[in-house]
Structures are given as structure tokens and as C-alpha cells.
Amino acid sequence: MTNDLLVQCLAAFLFTVGMMVVLLRRDTIMVLMGIELLLNAANLSLVGFSNSSQMIEGQMQVFFVITIAAAESAIGLSILVNLYRNFGSIKTEIANTLKG
């Protein structure tokens, strides 16, 4: 197995783990970390591809993605604070007032 393939497999594995965390965990902090893991798996994949094809484009874009991930987690945490104020908990199952 070459290094490039290894990196891609690792990225795919991390993406799957992140997806499972987002879909299965009931704790919103964990869900937030799952979303971060998804973005970082994509970053790893981009870096791996641009390394194997000797193009700098992919690596450049990773910096933008890291910035966006930081902004996204800031907004996610502030939404969590607001959720805790209104419901007194941050478990996902308490937020079920909207149905129909």
C-alpha cells in the first residue's frame, strides 16, 4: 500500500467516524466535534491529493477551510449557549418542541 492511498484511506475513515458521531451521539458538544472531524477529514484528503499530484491548489484551500471551521465552531457554541439558556440542557432529545 502506497503512502498516498494510506492517507486517503485514513481521511475516508475519519470522515466515516465523524459522520457516525454526528448522526448517533445525543450530546450536542459531541455533535459539534463530529462536524469538526468531518471538515478535518476533508482537509486531510485535500492535502493528500495535492501532494500526490504535485499541485499546490489543494493545500492552499486548506487554510481557508480551517478559518471557516473556526468560525463555524464559534457560531455552534453560541447556539449551544442559547439552547442551554432556554432548555436547561444540551442533550439533543430535549429540543423537540417543533413537530407536525
Binding site: V22, T28, V31, I35, I75, G76, I79, L80, N82, L83, R85, N86, F87, T92, A95, N96, T97, L98
Partner: peptide, 12 residues
């Protein structure tokens, strides 16, 4: 309450 719940769902 509805708004923060909607925000959470949309965000995730």
C-alpha cells in the same frame, strides 16, 4: 425556545 431549537437543527 422554538428559535434556539430551529437554530440547532439548521446548524447541525
Amino acid at each position: 425556545r422554538f428559535s434556539s431549537e430551529a437554530g440547532l437543527k439548521y446548524f447541525i
